[in-house]
């Protein structure tokens, strides 16, 4: 069983739940940016959550299945076609040998997930099948998919006709709140700088990929100081340090960048807060132009939100079992 890539779509890669444990040598967690949608796609086709799926940004691929397969598409709001005929998303589909899966124009969200029963069976690298593009390893041959690639598929036992209830599918809005825990180097901001960070919305720029999401808005002010030895000359510089996944850095005070799952693991820019784990999927599904308010919450509120997200995921999994 294999999948032939006829057209690759945009920034299409193989991703699973990620590669923890190597951040101390600069290897980020990687994995599906929107883990909820990836888990739903896997559950729909009878795979464990750890199975590898196909992730695309904004534009879906065109794929041909060499043998019968149970397939599901989740994530962004995008019309799905099987042999040119409309097919439902968030639903397990019964594809016959030679069937082609393709997509129309994205209507909302940003990232599309395609799961196939048995999972995409590329080799494990450091315990994960996820592509880490900067390191050129993992995924399919250490790179994004190209036309002509043939993806190996494992053995599965999915059944068609399962569907994620409407209420358990994500909603995509052009305005959103992104909850953050302030801290890290936020003491380096002036009061005006802090107010500029959290009191006004930021617009997501087109520079939004698996490494980071860059926003545009008003510049932030940093406290002037004599820079410490080793920290670099700009007030937004620090002695190079590790970057939390989801942390927000503001090089030069101009454009906040949220680091995502293919983050650079460290560097010399001050970070002023971190997106809570429960909102990383929401950031992943935001398209350029989206207006985001960074809403400060406490660590306890972040943990409550995490518990709510887990409960919602458990409800989704239960609905498909």
């Amino acid at each position: 069983m294999a999948i032939e890539v006829i057209e690759p779509g945009l920034a299409t890669s193989i991703q699973d739940e990620g590669r923890p444990g190597y951040y101390n040598v600069g290897v980020p967690p990687s994995g599906a940016l929107d883990l909820y949608s990836a888990a739903a796609a896997n559950a729909l086709v009878g795979n464990p959550s750890s199975a590898a799926v196909i992730e695309s940004a904004y534009m879906g691929p065109k794929l041909r299945f060499t043998e019968p397969a149970v397939v599901a598409v989740t994530g962004a709001d995008i019309p799905v076609l099987v042999n040119g005929q409309s097919a439902p998303s968030w639903t397990s589909l019964d594809l016959k040998a030679g069937d082609e899966l393709s997509f129309e124009i994205l209507a909302g969200g940003a990232r599309i997930y395609i799961a196939v029963s048995g999972g995409i069976d590329v080799p494990l690298v450091l315990g994960s099948r996820s592509l880490y593009a900067l390191g050129a390893f993992g995924g399919f041959q250490g790179r994004a998919l190209q036309a002509g690639d043939v993806l190996p598929v494992g053995v599965g036992s999915g059944r068609p006709g399962l569907s994620v209830p409407e209420a358990l599918r994500p909603q995509f809005a052009k305005e959103m709140d992104v909850r953050i825990v302030l801290g890290l180097y936020d003491y380096r901001l002036t009061d005006e700088g802090m107010s500029a960070l959290v009191d006004r919305p930021w617009q997501l720029s087109p520079v939004a990929d698996r490494i980071g999401f860059r926003y545009a808005g008003n510049p932030l002010q940093w406290k002037e100081r004599e820079q410490p030895f080793g920290a670099g000359s700009d007030p937004s510089n620090i002695t190079d340090a590790g970057y939390p996944v989801g942390s927000i850095q503001v090089p030069g005070g101009i454009e906040p960048i949220i680091l995502h799952r293919d983050a650079v693991s460290g560097g010399g820019y001050a970070q002023v807060g971190t997106v809570i784990s429960a909102d990383m999927d929401v950031v992943a599904q935001s398209a350029p132009g989206t207006m985001a308010m960074f809403v400060p919450v406490t660590l306890d509120q972040a943990l409550e939100a995490r518990a709510e997200a887990r409960a919602r995921r458990a409800e989704m999994m239960a609905a498909l079992s």
Partner: peptide
């Protein structure tokens, strides 16, 4: 000591670099 949201703890030992 500072939290990087609910998955990270960061310890800033000093602001300057030294062995």
């Amino acid at each position: 000591y500072s939290w990087g949201a609910d998955e990270h703890l960061v310890v800033q030992i000093t602001e300057d670099m030294s062995l």
